[in-house]
């Protein structure tokens, strides 16, 4: 188990380094390829020539790329001083860059936005797991029943209807729909959990539903298919032959074998969503990572884009690592195979 663990961690670290290099390289290359002013991208402001030169000097654009990469990476550890040509700022460690547009370190902005996305994703994940897996198991156990057919239709709709549509519909109905549905007459506004837990929860519910609908449908289909396969396995027949009651056969023997693929998928989906639920956050105007990234892109605030990209990539790598480790816990065959 320890060898498996160390191997996976070493692998994840390698990926992190590669991701940071690639991200850095892309953002170095992009301005050069488009022929735009580097100083503009890095400060997000129009600059005079003198300012641009000062920025270039401070950022070290004339230095060789590996050195720039090193400066960037060591900034994460040690912090660094930056300038937009007008004011000098100190970007304290860990420094992922500084947004001169917002006059704030990038990490601080990410730190503010991340809890929103985290709450959105985890809450939705709980919902879709609960409903998706339950529906999938029930469909598989009562294959061909009315419930199974209904679940198939509903999940087909869930998979095919785009989330911005359900999102807009939900917002419309809840804020200005028929009176009995108008639960949020003042709009759906994000409140931090620490300030008002009830308000936070209330605000979270609609985007949760919106996000969970799509994923619940996907998970129901996956669970149903895997479960059907599993219930035909020899070891499930063995469980029946032992005289176990149906709920034990389905729950302990059938569902247990379906867990690893579901856990894998949850890990990867949650990892990807944590990097930013762009559509939903923008739609509901929730200040999460997705909206941060979206705004940074529209305002060409390069340090923020870069910071969010790297954090997003890190989260995916981290999620992958967690999935691998969980797999080791869930499947003894994986644990023993190096």
């Amino acid at each position: 188990m320890l060898r498996y663990l160390l191997g996976r961690i070493a692998g994840a670290l390698t990926v992190v380094v590669v991701v940071s290099v690639v991200t850095f390289a892309i953002f170095q290359l992009a301005p050069r390829l488009t022929g735009a002013n580097m100083a503009f991208y890095y400060t997000g402001k129009a600059t005079s020539e003198a300012q641009a030169a000062a920025v270039a000097q401070k950022f070290g654009f004339d230095k060789p790329l590996p050195e720039q990469y090193w400066t960037f990476m060591s900034g994460i550890v040690a912090g660094r001083d930056l300038s937009d040509g007008v004011t000098e700022v100190e970007c304290p460690a860990p420094c992922l860059g500084y947004s001169f547009r917002q006059n704030r370190p990038v990490l601080e902005m990410i730190g503010e936005a991340f809890p929103v996305t985290l709450g959105l994703t985890l809450g939705a994940a709980v919902l879709w797991l609960l409903f998706g897996v339950a529906a999938g198991v029930l469909s598989a156990v009562r294959r061909g029943s009315v419930f199974d057919r209904l679940a198939t239709v509903v999940s087909l709709i869930g998979v095919s209807v785009p989330e911005f549509f359900t999102g807009m519909l939900l917002i419309y109905l809840l804020t200005s729909g028929p009176a009995w549905l108008r639960l949020y007459p003042d709009g759906i506004n994000y409140v931090p959990l620490t300030e008002d837990p009830v308000g936070w929860f209330a605000a979270m519910v609609p985007p949760w539903i919106c996000l969970a609908l799509l994923f619940a449908a996907l998970y129901a289909r996956l669970t149903r298919a895997t479960m059907l396969e599993t219930m035909n396995e020899d070891y499930v027949r063995t469980a029946w032959a032992k005289g176990l009651p149906p709920r034990t056969v389905v729950g302990r023997h059938g569902l247990r074998a379906v867990l690893p693929p579901i856990v894998t998928l949850v890990g990867l989906d949650v990892g990807a969503l944590l990097g930013g639920v762009v559509l939903i956050e923008t739609l509901f105007s929730f200040p999460g990572l997705g909206r941060l990234a979206y705004r940074a892109i529209t305002s060409q605030d390069l340090p923020v884009i870069m910071g969010v990209t790297i954090v997003g990539a890190l989260l995916i790598v981290f999620a992958n690592l967690v999935v691998d480790l969980l797999y080791g816990v869930l499947d003894p065959r994986v644990r023993n195979a190096r």
Partner: peptide, 14 residues
């Protein structure tokens, strides 16, 4: 009680 042909697939792997 019953014993099956292929013991690897008849035992739960987890």
């Amino acid at each position: 009680a019953m014993v099956f042909q292929d013991p690897l697939s008849a035992l739960h792997p987890y």
